[in-house]
């Protein structure tokens, strides 16, 4: 995108959507904006924590930051995009937030980068599968489990859709071209309380987040090759880091690494 000037007051701001009281977000708009990064929180709704970590880098790299808040109790199924009968559509929530932020900051853009931590990484890759046309690059950090790029498994384990969505079609030829990078803490190999321990996921993806990240990348890579697409998904192991955003930032400079990769041409 072209560099755009915004009304800047150098602060992270909170915004409540006027048309939907359940939806809000934090944003930071530097003086000049060259790219846009959406930061998606985990199940603990740590949106503020994430945007605070990225703010100094965003200022330096001229990145508009938007951190949506998928409200607890409302956006119940946000990691899985809000399937029919399970909760409101979280992809549309994000698109509504982006639309609101565009008019608020007067910054126009079509594509953006996506960063997701834990449940946010689940959301981020599923959003990218559904709307690859909106995404430049996706940084996935410590997703609990993944949607595999196969139509043999029903959504959200795989791509086979029944009545989950009215209007989503997963098209591998499109979403396999997107640039993904997966980050995972070196110590994120525990079967902790928040990990989905479904036996099918254990069997198809692995027993912990580290194993699951590796097997997802392998399968994605296999399908990338099968479709003859030139793409490569990289895995970054974060040293001394557990399943905790602060630990990943303090021990492995996750925010610096991610920002650098996302902004590399």
């Amino acid at each position: 995108m072209k560099a755009t000037h915004s009304k800047n007051n150098n602060e992270i701001l909170f915004r409540q959507l006027p048309s939907q009281e359940q939806m809000s977000y934090y944003y930071f708009a530097p003086k000049t904006v060259k790219s846009v990064l959406i930061l998606v929180h985990g199940i603990s709704r740590n949106a503020k924590e994430i945007i605070k970590a990225f703010k100094p880098l965003a200022e330096k790299n001229q990145v508009l930051l938007i951190a949506p808040i998928f409200k607890k109790g409302y956006a119940k199924d946000y990691q899985r995009l809000g399937r029919n009968g399970k909760g409101p559509r979280s992809d549309y929530q994000l698109m509504g937030i982006i639309k609101d932020c565009k008019s608020l900051t007067n910054i126009q853009f079509n594509k953006f980068n996506l960063f997701g931590f834990s449940a946010g990484a689940q959301f981020a890759h599923r959003f990218t599968f559904a709307h690859p046309n909106l995404i430049n690059k996706v940084a996935l950090v410590a997703a609990g489990w993944y949607t595999l790029p196969t139509k043999h498994l029903a959504y959200p384990s795989g791509l086979k859709l029944k009545k989950e969505f009215n209007d989503i079609a997963f098209i591998p030829k499109r979403f396999l071209r997107t640039k993904y990078r997966v980050y995972i803490g070196e110590k994120d190999n525990k079967r902790d309380a928040s990990l989905n321990k479904n036996s099918i996921i254990d069997e198809t993806q692995g027993l912990n987040r580290l194993e699951r990240a590796i097997s997802w990348i392998e399968l994605m890579q296999l399908h990338i090759q099968k479709h003859g697409i030139k793409n490569h998904i990289e895995l970054e192991i974060l040293p001394n880091s557990s399943h905790d955003f602060v630990s990943c930032v303090n021990n492995a400079n996750l925010h610096i690494q991610a920002m650098k990769w996302l902004n590399d041409e």
């Binding site: 959507l17 939806m23 698109m95 509504g96």
Partner: peptide
């Protein structure tokens, strides 16, 4: 919960 109201997400 069976009716959701979201901001109009598209341009």
């Amino acid at each position: 919960e069976n009716v959701q109201v979201l901001p109009f997400p598209f341009d």
